[in-house]
Design a protein around this nucleic acid. Structure first.
Length: 809
RNA sequence: GCUGGUGUGGCGGAAUGGCAGACGCACAGGACUUAAAAUCCUGAGUUCGAAAGGACGUGUGGGUUCGACUCCCACCACCAGCACCA
């Protein structure tokens, strides 16, 4: 069969017939399947795209066969740095290269033969799309959840922009790998921390991989504890956060971060020189050096002392760069007796350690976890568990106004401004009289101007375009300037799944509430695990926000989440141009897209991925040809059906087993097993084919069902065969057949016979035999009776259809 | 360091606590062919044995169980995430 030719033929016909059109009138059976959209790149589709889009499409096709009205939209995450960097290199405007890449990619995605609903296509750089990106910004701003503050930011000197914490990898820019600098700049943030608790609790009800939930939980990093106020002699308040208030009795020093605003006020005259030197040195260190667990902890005494509110003891205050200024209060209490870090620090600077224990080598160690809380010499707290002591201590502090219960999160607010051109403009107008004012909704979208000088110079390039920048204040009408920064592309992608169903509706709202509620959340979202603490967290946040606004009734974007594994180069490393000798296109030309798809499904686990190998791709072609031969032969059969035979029952069994298992394995994305089950069925068909007189009705039924099961995996080939065996177009509109439980019951089944759990013999036992009958038959077996000779059976264990185990003495 | 995950033939990988290695690749043998390819059939965990048959086998060591790849404990290796979060 000429696979390439039939693929072309059917792709054209399917497109002409709009075969996979989403039916807006059947929303009760809708199934929203979404594959994370991609960045429009200039390179042609690589194997990874096929792996992601092609295989999740097979899942969608399977759901279609099950009778679902599958909604599988496709679009492009079109703003972002690559287009801009490419533009700086080549002089081609980002808009032009992006548009060109999109049309190239659309064509190739169509060649996949996937069932995408192109009429709902979204492109994030279209004004009609980013109108809503801006609308969301304005709503966040109005609720106080989008705000500006001077903050230390990660600045990439090469990309010339601020980047999010999530985009910093080991202190380096995720994209260009240059070392990230830390600057204080006035920045736009989204207050995602406001939703920290709900982002955490919402995870429980989601059908998401446990791994991803853990990643998000750790990222949010909830820590329940208390704040405790320590005062200096001068009356300066230093508030610390601790999750172990029960160790307050053991505090022997306080440590403050160098960047903390209060630090300066703590430095005494005679300590000034040493402290300033220390701070200057700390400022030079990069993030890795400061936050590595292996870096020895250093600090310097400020000269100030504070009073422990519980014991009234006087303890010294140190500055140390291991304290993170942005977490909690940026001040930590040191308890040498309890914490290994504090223990080392106390040793180093000769500070008090209340109590130590000796480990098995006689070395001094801080107290183990279980002995927390034992240090107080106060009858009031004696005998309590550490948890009880914690509560009681904080309650006492609350009474005297020097402490309170407090929960902190590791999660920081989302830094969303970028000093780059190719992004969604921030819809804010800065007025000297009115401050930062949101652009009125009727004036959205704020169109990104088509400018030629988009070179980044540390400030938004839009700032150089007066036509864009100069405007009037919507509140007072005086002259004002627009915000020059654009938004992080993760803002664009944080709500696209909500926008898709509306994208071809001419509505004037982000989402028609009734329609959105019927279409969403996404039933199955497929994408890489690398987005666990980025996109997947942001989109949950924005969904919750839109829910609170009343735009939608659901508050999670996707019910079920599947991560594909990554497909690696043959050397086991990340796929690159260097190690991928052939492109997807080469394989399609040589073997056809169905063979490529089948090979990908069969040769690796979808959830785990692994190194790409093309060994066996030609056998997928052979597998299809094997199906073609048997189907062509069986389609031509005619005459009388043969009577019931064992062989016929075997074939019926094989068919129904396949129907059952293929469905189960497709549902769980175990594509490799699903294909294996089909191969078993084909093997069974060949076995049955050796019989002279066949049950023709059964042959034809088996053949048809086989092709339907194959349709999601090899859509073009299955359609071609469907036609050639004389069935009506299209196979993709058929229903996945139900399996017949009764056909899975065999008359006799082979069981293993064990004596003392050791297999002695295997024998066929009638399925309907009782346990007693089975045991009696088994005991009569020659080999079994030989082993049993002279011994008495003390116990008989019968697992029907599986095993008989005779325990003897 | 902490938190997860993974560990099964030469390879990709199967296996609701019940016959480990399904299905396939690579390999070997056979049929067809002048021959090759394709196709069809057969074999194959390792090891001892001519064979019948035996022993050992799911990272290592224990445990629970009539029975463990599967459950529990400890350890080892690799991978990923977080990386002084008080």
């Amino acid at each position: 069969m000429d696979f390439v030719a039939i693929e072309k033929k059917w792709n054209e016909k399917w497109e002409k017939d709009n075969l996979y059109k989403f039916d807006e009138n059947k929303l009760d059976k809708k199934f929203y399947l979404l594959e994370m959209f991609s960045y429009p790149s200039a390179a042609s589709l690589h194997l990874g795209h096929w792996w992601n889009f092609g295989l999740s499409d097979s899942f969608g096709r399977f759901k279609r066969l099950q009778g679902y009205n599958v909604f599988q939209p496709m679009g492009f995450d079109a703003f972002g740095l690559p287009a801009e960097n490419y533009a700086l290199k080549t002089g081609i405007h980002p808009e032009d290269s992006t548009r060109r890449n999109i049309s190239l990619m659309e064509k190739q995605l169509k060649d996949l033969g996937a069932t995408f609903n192109w009429e709902y296509e979204l492109i994030t750089c279209d004004p009609e799309y980013y109108r809503w990106t801006q609308w969301i910004f304005v709503q966040l701003f109005k609720k106080g959840l989008a705000y500006q503050k001077e903050a230390p930011v990660n600045f990439c000197p090469k990309c010339n922009t601020i980047i999010a914490n999530e985009q910093v990898v080991n202190g380096h820019c995720e994209r260009c790998e240059s070392e990230v600098q830390h600057k204080n700049m006035r920045q736009w943030f989204f207050k995602i921390t406001e939703y920290a608790d709900r982002l955490l609790s919402g995870l429980d009800k989601l059908d998401w991989p446990e791994k991803t939930k853990i990643l998000q939980r750790n990222w949010i990093g909830k820590s329940v504890g208390a704040e405790v106020d320590f005062y200096t002699e001068d009356g300066l308040k230093l508030t610390v956060f601790t999750s172990r208030a029960d160790t307050l009795f053991g505090v022997s020093f306080l440590v403050i971060a160098p960047e903390n605003k209060l630090t300066e006020k703590l430095i005494k005259k005679e300590n000034r020189k040493a402290v300033e030197e220390y701070i200057a040195q700390a400022a030079k260190k990069d993030e890795i050096e400061r936050t590595s667990t292996t870096t020895p902890k250093t600090g310097v005494f400020t000269g100030s002392y504070v009073i422990n509110p519980l014991t009234n003891e006087k303890v010294p205050v140190f500055v140390a760069d291991y304290v993170i200024s942005t977490y909690a209060t940026g001040i930590v209490m040191g308890v040498g007796a309890h914490d290994e870090r504090d223990f080392d620090f106390a040793k180093k600077y000769g500070l008090e350690i209340r109590r130590v224990i000796n480990d098995k080598n006689g070395k001094e160690q801080p107290l183990p976890f279980t002995e927390y809380g034992v240090l107080c010499n106060s009858a009031e707290f004696d005998g309590l568990t550490s948890a009880e002591a914690r509560t009681k201590i904080v309650e006492k502090l609350e009474k005297i106004g020097k402490g309170r219960f407090k929960t902190n999160y590791r999660l920081r607010d989302w830094s969303v401004a970028r000093q780059r051109y190719w992004g969604c403009p921030i819809p804010i107008i800065h007025c000297q009289h009115c401050g930062a004012v949101p652009v009125p909704e009727k004036d959205l979208p704020v169109i990104l101007p088509h400018i030629s000088d988009y070179k980044p110079e540390g400030e938004g390039p839009l700032g150089k375009c007066d036509e864009f920048m100069n405007t009037t204040c919507p509140v007072c009408g005086r002259k004002a300037r627009r915000e020059a920064d654009t938004m992080d592309t993760f803002v664009d992608s944080s709500f696209y799944m909500i926008r898709y169903p509306e994208s071809n509706h001419n509505n004037t709202c982000l989402a028609d509430k009734k329609h959105a509620n019927a279409m969403l959340p996404v039933d199955c979202y497929v994408g890489g695990v690398e987005h666990a603490t980025g996109h997947l967290l942001y989109s949950r946040f924005i969904t919750k926000f839109l829910h609170d606004l009343g735009v939608i009734d659901f508050d999670e974007p996707a019910k079920r989440l599947i991560h594909q594994g990554m497909i690696l180069g043959p050397d086991g490393r990340k796929m690159s141009k260097r190690n991928g000798s052939k492109t997807a296109d080469d394989y399609v030309k040589e073997f056809g897209s169905d063979a490529l798809r089948l090979h990908m499904m069969f040769s690796l686990k979808y959830i785990e991925g692994g190194p790409w190998s093309d060994d066996g791709i030609k056998h997928m072609k052979a597998f299809m040809e094997r199906i073609e031969r048997i189907c062509t032969k069986w389609a031509g059969l005619s005459g009388k059906s043969a009577p019931q035979t064992k062989a016929e029952k075997d074939l019926e069994f094989a068919l129904n087993k396949a129907l059952k298992d293929v469905a189960e394995n497709m549902e769980s994305f175990s594509f490799n097993v699903a294909v294996a089950r089909l191969m078993e069925l084909v093997n069974a068909m060949y076995k049955y084919d050796t019989i002279e007189e066949k049950n023709i009705a059964l042959c034809k039924q088996t053949m048809k069902d086989l092709l339907i099961m194959l349709a999601p995996m090899a859509p073009h080939f299955a359609e071609e065969m469907w036609e050639s065996v004389g069935e009506k177009y299209s196979i993709h509109n058929q229903r996945y057949p139900q399996f017949d439980e009764s056909k899975l019951q065999q008359d006799a089944i082979e069981i293993a016979v064990q004596v003392n759990s050791k297999i002695v013999v295997r024998m066929d036992i009638p399925t309907n035999a009782t346990n007693e009958e089975i045991v009696s038959v088994v005991k009569k077996n020659e080999k079994v009776s030989a082993v049993l000779a002279g011994k008495s059976v003390v116990k008989e264990i019968v697992v029907p259809g599986r095993i008989v185990n005779l325990i003897v003495k």
